[in-house]
């Protein structure tokens, strides 16, 4: 018996992409310590709009750390447009599922990525359809996200 499945535990115990980038092209932060989790995701984007590197720093529980690890792994090598299309449900599926009360951890990772891309778009004068009307400071209104099937 364990709280989390093996994939989640592996991403928590051996998280990938922990740290900060030296000259990030975009930085996104989501959540707050008061709520119990806060994630920072940084990205490097090349001239072809491909995310070449991503790093995270997370204050939070096991599934928040595992979600950060998985989410950053999933966006490395992807086009920015593709990363923007990533949903919290895909993160959960890739993790092999999260307990229902932990779904919001995947939402956090999803939002932190969007915020990092938003920051990148702002700084580099880029426009993405998926970011139209996007508010990086929006409340965690959708914090429970979609459950994995």
């Amino acid at each position: 018996m364990a709280l989390y499945n093996d994939i989640v535990m592996d991403n928590f115990l051996n998280p990938k992409n922990v740290g900060e980038l030296e000259n990030p092209d975009g930085t996104g932060v989501y959540g707050s310590p008061v709520c119990g989790d806060m994630m920072q995701i940084q990205i490097k984007v090349d001239d072809n709009d491909v995310i070449t590197d991503a790093k995270f720093k997370t204050f939070g529980c096991g599934s928040a750390i595992a979600s950060s690890s998985m989410a950053t792994t999933m966006i490395i090598g992807k086009k920015v447009e593709e990363a923007l299309a990533l949903t919290n449900k895909q993160i959960i599926d890739e993790l092999g599922g999260l307990p229902p009360v932990k779904i919001h951890c995947s939402v956090l990772a999803d939002k932190a990525i969007k915020n990092a891309i938003y920051d990148y778009a702002q700084k580099h004068g880029k426009h993405y359809e998926a970011l139209e009307g996007y508010d990086p400071n929006a409340d965690e209104d959708d914090e429970h996200g979609e459950e994995a099937e």
Partner: peptide, 24 residues
């Protein structure tokens, strides 16, 4: 600067049982 459930999980990996006041 860290969260209790994460502490609990890592300690559990080391065979240590404790509890936390964390919401998570």
């Amino acid at each position: 600067y860290i969260e209790g459930e994460a502490i609990l999980l890592l300690l559990n990996q080391l065979g240590i049982c404790v509890s936390t006041g964390s919401a998570c």
